[in-house]
Amino acid sequence: MSADLFSNEMLRIHPARKISGTVARLLAAEGDAFPTSAVESLTFTFEGIPGDFHAGSTRRSGGREPWYPRGTEMRNERQISILAVDELAEIAKRMEIEKIEPEWIGANVVMDGLPRLSMIPPRTRLVFENGAVLRVDGQNGPCRIAGKSIAAHYRDREGLDLAFPKVAARLRGLVAWVEKPGTVAPGEAVTANIPEQWIYEA
């Protein structure tokens, strides 16, 4: 093996940094419902949001995890759905519709001021002003289920359910899990602690 593989000159490393934003809205999905509704605050526990559709320390695998038989119990890294105000507006523009409300597609936290939210990398810590911390798992891939929810609000338009997965790629926000419990309120400041990044090349 070439010694050059271990040379720092071969690595393209971006240093860790912090960026700040605010919580624009908070929402929760109670019971078996996928859509969410606005709440005045959210309490995060190690299981996620108590009573929320995606709460739990574990979850069952689905179409996103083809490496497991469907229904396999696995760690729940999708406890919290995070969206951005500007990215929702961009998706609506691309779909040529007036708007997309975050509750239509199951949002829990809507952020403002964090640029290109959906591109924030895994392992980023979202530290909220009052002490709660979420750990980013990664992007939330757009699916037809969310597309159908949007389409239900524009019944005069055909094909929106299929259009959403195509145009919302890398704009659908993030999924995260609770690293440190706490309560979050709208208007609260949040700091994204972005870790050192690099492109892995073998």
Score class of each variant (00 low, 15 high):
residue 4 D to I: 10
residue 4 D to F: 10
residue 9 E to H: 08
residue 9 E to V: 08
residue 15 P to C: 01
residue 15 P to G: 04
residue 16 A to K: 14
residue 16 A to M: 08
residue 16 A to E: 13
residue 16 A to Q: 10
residue 19 I to D: 09
residue 20 S to L: 00
residue 25 R to N: 12
residue 25 R to E: 15
residue 25 R to W: 08
residue 25 R to L: 14
residue 27 L to R: 00
residue 28 A to N: 01
residue 29 A to E: 07
residue 29 A to T: 12
residue 31 G to N: 10
residue 31 G to K: 04
residue 36 T to S: 15
residue 36 T to Y: 02
residue 37 S to Q: 15
residue 37 S to T: 13
residue 43 T to F: 06
residue 47 E to G: 04
residue 47 E to D: 15
residue 49 I to L: 08
residue 52 D to M: 00
residue 52 D to K: 01
residue 54 H to G: 02
residue 55 A to S: 15
residue 56 G to A: 09
residue 56 G to C: 12
residue 60 R to S: 12
residue 61 S to A: 07
residue 61 S to Y: 11
residue 64 R to D: 04
residue 66 P to V: 13
residue 67 W to P: 01
residue 70 R to K: 13
residue 71 G to P: 07
residue 73 E to T: 14
residue 75 R to D: 01
residue 77 E to T: 13
residue 77 E to W: 10
residue 77 E to Q: 14
residue 82 I to K: 02
residue 84 A to D: 14
residue 84 A to T: 02
residue 85 V to Q: 03
residue 88 L to A: 08
residue 89 A to N: 06
residue 90 E to I: 01
residue 91 I to E: 03
residue 99 K to A: 14
residue 99 K to V: 11
residue 99 K to W: 03
residue 100 I to C: 05
residue 101 E to N: 01
residue 105 I to L: 09
residue 106 G to C: 06
residue 109 V to H: 00
residue 113 G to H: 07
residue 114 L to E: 05
residue 119 M to K: 07
residue 124 T to N: 10
residue 132 A to L: 02
residue 134 L to H: 10
residue 135 R to S: 11
residue 137 D to F: 03
residue 137 D to W: 06
residue 138 G to W: 02
residue 138 G to I: 08
residue 145 I to W: 06
residue 149 S to A: 12
residue 151 A to T: 06
residue 151 A to G: 11
residue 152 A to L: 11
residue 152 A to T: 07
residue 153 H to W: 14
residue 154 Y to E: 12
residue 155 R to T: 11
residue 155 R to V: 12
residue 159 G to D: 11
residue 159 G to S: 11
residue 160 L to S: 08
residue 163 A to T: 14
residue 164 F to D: 03
residue 164 F to W: 08
residue 164 F to S: 04
residue 164 F to N: 09
residue 165 P to H: 13
residue 166 K to R: 14
residue 166 K to S: 12
residue 168 A to V: 01
residue 170 R to K: 11
residue 171 L to S: 01
residue 172 R to M: 06
residue 174 L to F: 03
residue 175 V to I: 15
residue 178 V to G: 07
residue 180 K to I: 04
residue 180 K to L: 01
residue 182 G to E: 03
residue 184 V to D: 09
residue 184 V to Y: 05
residue 185 A to K: 14
residue 185 A to S: 09
residue 185 A to V: 15
residue 185 A to D: 04
residue 188 E to M: 06
residue 191 T to K: 07
residue 191 T to A: 07
residue 194 I to P: 02
residue 195 P to Y: 13
residue 195 P to E: 09
residue 200 Y to P: 04
